[in-house]
Amino acid sequence: MVASGETGLPVAAGVGLKPEHFEQVIGKAPALGFVEIHAENYLVAGGPMHHYLERVCARYPLSVHGVGLSIGGEEPLDRGHLQALRGLLDRYQPAVFSEHLAWSSHGGIFFNDLLPLPYTRRTLERLCEHIEQVQDALGRRILLENPSTYVEFSGSSYSEAEFIGELVKRSGCGLLLDVNNAYISCINHGRDLDEFIAALPLHAVGEIHLAGFHRDRDSLGAPLLIDSHGSAVDRAVWQAYESVLERTGPLSTLIEWDNDIPPFETLCAEAARAQGYLSACAVREA
């Protein structure tokens, strides 16, 4: 169980780097395993984004998380965007690059949301083709993140876990296991979380994401969880995280908090909590 050894990212807890926290990350140099950025926020020519990222990168290992490649999209990949990503990765040499099992652009329009895909053979073939193109263009293996979704497609012929398993097997990409997404999707679609996790290709997990969600209800009053990244990690998600670690051993773990961004100390406290689970897991393994 050394899946994350393949990524080069430390097996420790990290946080999503927000511009609101730039000064504190540099000034206070807190104990963090790594930081993660959203690639698209740094595809600008110059100015403060690069100024701060260079300084943060001098102290912390980096993971780059893409949110705009539309890798599951029906249309051909955006070559210009891929090239820009390659430039960013060449400049900052992150340990990991990850993207989403989703689509976000169509007909030249960018929707700024991670939109769901029907789990069909056609989608699988298209994704494998796109992942191969991305891995070729970026010159590295990528991690793909399991989605949080609010609807399912009647045309799907695979379960989500089966689909991800096939994808990993055929394309050779790794899995970014977002435990919050897994929990959200299981609640939103009446799935059993343990069964879902057990059916995933856990050997391929290179990184874990944890985040907070927002509670809503569907038209029948059943819980509908929204992937808001705007609060602390839920108790149920911590539990799921602990049980994932029991299966996988310790893995690089990111706290994502993108909405209602908290004081930096709050974010670090969440990371410290994840670090606690990681350390306990490492002790059990030893």
């Binding site: 959203h38 927002h214 993108d258």
Partner: peptide, 14 residues
């Protein structure tokens, strides 16, 4: 004000 505008969060509520 510096802000990273590309995110993978969802807006609150339906």
């Amino acid at each position: 004000a510096l802000a990273g505008k590309n995110d993978c969060k969802a807006g609150p509520g339906t």
